[in-house]
Amino acid sequence: MNPDKTCFAASVRKRIIEATLHAGVSHIGGSLSVVEVLRCLFNGILGIDAKNLWSRERDQLVLSKGHAALALYAVLVEKGFLPEELFQEYGQKEETVMGIHPELGIPGIDAATGSLGHGLPIGVGFALSFRMKNQPFHVFVLAGDGEFNEGSNWECLPIALHYRLDNLTLIVDRNRLQLSGFTEEMHPLEPLGEKFSAFGWDVKEVDGHNMEAVGEVLREAKNRKNGLPLVVIAQTVKGRGVVEIENKVDSHYCGISPEVARKYLDVSFQGGSGVIP
């Protein structure tokens, strides 16, 4: 394991914890579950840098699970794309663009999201546009698993297949929890991979906290030319890294006590419970 990778992910986690402590509350669970996926996307997968930050002529990321914006903000600030002072506004100012959900106008945000089931259609629109304009860019849509309760997501599957969108990769953050409970106890999704397969999509499953594995699967995803849309089901743990809230229903939207936060904000902290990387 490259220590830099762990270091980046650990810094992102610390930022999420710190921002939650200061704001009093955040969508911390679903933010912590996507840290490794975002870390990999922004380090070697997405062709995004300080020069093309505001351009549409580059790979695009749609954070369909917009409530995990805190994780994306933390990654953007770690990358130096988002000014530190803007990041500090999260949950702090009387009015700010740095809300719970990402808005256009924030550096590095390619689509405004927050209403579930809206990200994949926008991502399909991006991919179709790149195809029509003969542009070589790739679209990643990062969606929650609970989000697959929404019909608009399923509407997109035949469309992406029909247009053979191999410039589109959907990543599902399969943390098995949604706002009020476990997905399988509420609105069962399994067998999720088989369902995507039945829609004609290519399906890959990966440990969403294993950065080597995530990096490899996303690199392959970006380079594929097989005429098939692809879903990467990232098996993750909601609240990953903060053992007190890991895999807990309440982690969807909660605060963190100063005592718990202090434990993880200690300089030696490399990812929380000690289970990772």
Partner: peptide, 26 residues
């Protein structure tokens, strides 16, 4: 014909796709 995108009977996806296309300048 290359200017037509067929979404099937999917108004929500169709409208979201329009948003994506417009964000890319079409």
């Amino acid at each position: 014909p290359q200017r037509i995108i067929e979404c099937g009977i999917c108004e929500q996806a169709g409208m979201g796709i329009c948003a994506g296309l417009a964000l890319q300048g079409l």
